[in-house]
Design a protein around this nucleic acid. Sequence first.
DNA 1: CTGTTAGCGCCTTCAC
DNA 2: GTGAAGGCGCTAACAG
Lengths: 330, 330
Amino acid sequence: MQSITIKDVAREAGVSTATVSRVLNRNGYVSHEVRQQVLAVVKRLNYQPNALARSLKQERTRTVGMVLPDMTNPYFMAVARTIQRRLLAHGYRLFYMDCDEDAEREREAIRVLQEMRTEAVILAGTGGNADAVARMIEAGRTVVLIDRTIDGIRADAVTDDNAGAADEAAAYLLGKYGPRFGIITGPRSTSTSRERAAGVKRALERAGCPSDPALWYEGDYTRRAGMEAGHYFLGMNEPPLAVFSFNNEMTYGFYLAMKQRGLPLDALEVVSFGELDAAPLFENRLSVIRQHPDQIGEAAADIVVSRLEGGAEGEPVQRVIMPALETASR
Amino acid sequence: MQSITIKDVAREAGVSTATVSRVLNRNGYVSHEVRQQVLAVVKRLNYQPNALARSLKQERTRTVGMVLPDMTNPYFMAVARTIQRRLLAHGYRLFYMDCDEDAEREREAIRVLQEMRTEAVILAGTGGNADAVARMIEAGRTVVLIDRTIDGIRADAVTDDNAGAADEAAAYLLGKYGPRFGIITGPRSTSTSRERAAGVKRALERAGCPSDPALWYEGDYTRRAGMEAGHYFLGMNEPPLAVFSFNNEMTYGFYLAMKQRGLPLDALEVVSFGELDAAPLFENRLSVIRQHPDQIGEAAADIVVSRLEGGAEGEPVQRVIMPALETASR
DNA sequence: CTGTTAGCGCCTTCAC
DNA sequence: GTGAAGGCGCTAACAG
């Protein structure tokens, strides 16, 4: 496990470590002859520069960290993949950390990324670590919030127009079925769920409909919660005529509940905030609010790069992506 | 961005850096009084130790790297999540890198992980970087292959019994439909696809059936390939009576093709190597070979830990997980 | 064009 | 029980 250092290369090539460094980093002058010589030794010894040492010296790591609440959710992975591609093109590596919607593990992940000296942190927060995030920003680190904002935190953010899209979806359901549709929310700790709920309430108020608490089920963005919500709604004396689920996983859970209760999947209409992988296979009674993860990823990556390359300072940037409601065909 | 160092803490607390270090690492003696004093300053200054410097000095990073071919595939993410949990419990961090089934990016990812001095690399290889992997092993690094092995590489590995499961599935289809079922393979460069193909051929031979090349479609484990295979098979004069898809994404793609062609999803039976998220929602004509990602993840993490903690040496360990065929109800 | 040197932040002997 | 000092591998002045 004894690894080869720049010294070994220098000795073997009969030059100084500085020269090797210059060859490797293509800066400073070095004769063609010596360069070839050094490169040959590098290859022969299979020398791998030590990124720890380099970063320590340069006080730059060219890395970006990302903390996600759920890496098995394809939505977040689609965002992450776009970000990674874009950052890579600018010479930055991206490290993902999964915190499993758990604030404690999120805190830990943030700590690790700071200790690693990632130059920026991209965060889809659980909402439980406002203090840690605040301290990061205070310390002058670049923080970009995606998908979810955090109460009391002023930072760059890329979010959906949650209220607008939820309002539109609720209005659509109202027009089609009246006010008897169920709502499966996310956890109150997330900004997305609160905003989506506000959007629904706005639509109900505009239509002069009171909001029936029995039609609201508070989930936590997991498949299990969607399933439980499904059993709740479908077990009612008068089940709702449609359901609005606040994320893709819960939508999937809701369908599982329908299945478990022996209902056909088109028994009622479902509106899902966020796409389902399997959506195209469903029979026409699933409406989807598309979130455009690519656009979110691109915007987030662009903000990171401009903060890191361009001057660091400036007011927080807020980018809002417009989701698109695609309604079921019947 | 000027970060706080151990020196700042030492000065502020009126002690030496050695003492601060001792407090932080709970080793060596330090009086209760001084310890409290130091901890207070650490908290007040929000001091974050520099992991680069610590790792450089200790020649240990307590990190493990993982290179995956497709992070949007829930199968790999399920494996990754289990590994992460288990490694975390042993004090290791896991870094994911996504190479998008691309050998070039895989090579790059391997290089980065080595430069970061991750203590082990877990790899679900594209098959295109045998040389780089060989050099890693040669250099004494811990490498654990998961899901896929690499030709000519002797390393710890956790794999499925691909041939066995494919044989069983093919025998099942043979018994039910005779030899007229289509096969959608993965890329020849992956060991999994080659082994699964061998399993199918074994079953065919045992039944005395010749293998009809027109019934084999070579995909690349992507959704798109599954879709193209779908159009190929469904466009035949005499379409097959069933289809065996070598991974979950291609299965999904195949169903998309059925949908696009206006066929009902139960028009023919599909056997999928690897689970589909949406499987439970399908109407009874999807059979699934469950791969038990949790077991794979656990085994891989255990191997890593035992290599890193226990003595490093020993013959390569081969763990084979048995997938389970769950057949459609009709 | 190339070598010498100092030091990035931390841990770890070795003194006291 | 605590401090002083050296060095992990590398790069960036500064000499020559």
